[in-house]
Amino acid sequence: MNIDTGKVTLVGAGPGDPELLTIKALKAIQAADVLLVDDLVSDEIVKYAPPGARVVYVGKRGGCKSTPQAFIEKLMVMAAREGGNVVRLKGGDPFIFGRGGEEVEHLREAGIHVEIVSGITSGLAAVTALGVPLTHREHAHGVVFVTGHAHSDAQGPDWQVLARAVRDARLTLVIYMGVSGAQRIQNELLSALPGSTPVAIVQHASLPGQRHAITTLAQLYETIVREQLASPSVIVIGNVVSAAASASSSTAKSLAA
């Protein structure tokens, strides 16, 4: 049973571009008393918070010093029990690799009312920025979102099984947090996918500093090193990426003409 407290809203801030916020997300931010902000949320989005709101940065990024998850959950409960309208502002979507599920469970167990506002996930924004679909009637009958960074106590994805599924079911594979493990991911995916499989790596999707590279699975790790692509990046693998490769080739030809 919920006790008489404030509430917590888990808000997806999208991939970074403020114009990709939903109206519902914007309204939630503007009504916040306390804003707990993830590391990947842009300053332009935080500026929508009301002047009197308390903003607390609780960054979490792979490979960097992060705020412990237990501490973030404790902050949310404390702020809600003080009667505040608490917004947990997360990059992308709260329920796609955003630990939103863990936080909802903890808050409900504590008797806190929770609402969730969806956001555009970076895996979608990354390919959209390149003009590429995730699904296509001729090239991809579905899409798989997977993390390349497993929880310390959990076994990571079985890349060889995923490779066979991508090949046999004609799927697009979207990998979050996969740059640091790109060499191993590449080697294991090559067990079932041809080296010529198109790949896109997109860093800082939707932001002014966005960078990307179009390559093949056989050249994935080499491309990341050569182009100095780093986290946060999304890796997209599948035939739909060939559209981006064709567009890049056409642009290069027109510039050379």
Rank of each mutant, 00 (worst) to 15 (best):
Met1Ser: 15
Met1Gly: 15
Ile3Trp: 02
Asp4Ser: 15
Thr5Val: 05
Val8His: 01
Thr9Met: 11
Gly12Val: 12
Gly14Ser: 07
Pro15Ala: 14
Pro15Arg: 11
Pro18Thr: 14
Pro18Asn: 14
Ala25Pro: 00
Ala25Cys: 05
Leu26His: 06
Leu26Cys: 07
Ala28Lys: 02
Gln30Ser: 14
Ala31Ser: 15
Ala31Gly: 09
Ala31Pro: 01
Val34Leu: 08
Leu35Ser: 04
Val41Met: 10
Val46Pro: 00
Tyr57Gln: 06
Val58Ala: 11
Gly59Leu: 06
Gly63Arg: 03
Cys64Gly: 01
Lys65Trp: 02
Ala70Pro: 07
Leu75Pro: 06
Met76Phe: 00
Arg81Asp: 00
Glu82His: 10
Val86Arg: 01
Val86Pro: 05
Arg88Ile: 10
Leu89Trp: 06
Lys90Gln: 11
Lys90Arg: 14
Pro94Gly: 08
Pro94Lys: 09
Pro94Val: 10
Ile96Cys: 04
Ile96Gly: 01
Gly98Val: 08
Gly98Ile: 09
Gly100Cys: 09
Gly101Thr: 13
Glu102Trp: 07
Glu102Cys: 05
Glu103Arg: 03
Ala110Cys: 06
Ile112Glu: 09
Val114Cys: 09
Val114Lys: 00
Val114Ile: 10
Ile116Met: 11
Val117Tyr: 03
Gly123Gln: 02
Gly123His: 01
His136Ile: 02
His136Leu: 03
Glu138Thr: 15
Ala140Trp: 00
Gly142Met: 01
Val144Asp: 06
Thr147Glu: 13
Pro157Leu: 09
Leu162Thr: 11
Leu162Gln: 12
Ala163Gln: 01
Arg164Glu: 14
Ala165Ser: 14
Leu171Gln: 12
Leu173Trp: 01
Leu173Ser: 04
Val174Ala: 02
Ile175Gly: 02
Ile175Cys: 03
Tyr176Thr: 06
Met177Tyr: 11
Val179Thr: 07
Ser180Asn: 13
Gly181Trp: 07
Gly181Lys: 08
Ala182Leu: 10
Gln183Val: 12
Gln183Ala: 15
Asn187Gln: 15
Glu188Leu: 10
Leu190Asn: 06
Ala192Asp: 05
Ala192Ile: 02
Ser196Val: 08
Ile201Tyr: 00
Gln203Pro: 00
Pro208Ala: 06
Gly209Trp: 02
Gln210Ala: 09
Gln210Lys: 03
Ala213Arg: 00
Gln219Asp: 15
Leu220Ser: 07
Leu220Thr: 07
Glu222Cys: 04
Glu222Arg: 09
Thr223Phe: 00
Val225His: 12
Val225Met: 13
Glu227Asp: 11
Glu227Asn: 05
Leu229Ser: 04
Ala230Glu: 08
Ser231Glu: 05
Gly238Phe: 02
Asn239Val: 04
Ser242Lys: 01
Ala243Thr: 08
Ala245Asn: 00
Ala245Thr: 05
Ser246Glu: 13
Thr251Ile: 14
Ala252Tyr: 12
Ser254Phe: 13
Ala257His: 11
Ala257Leu: 14
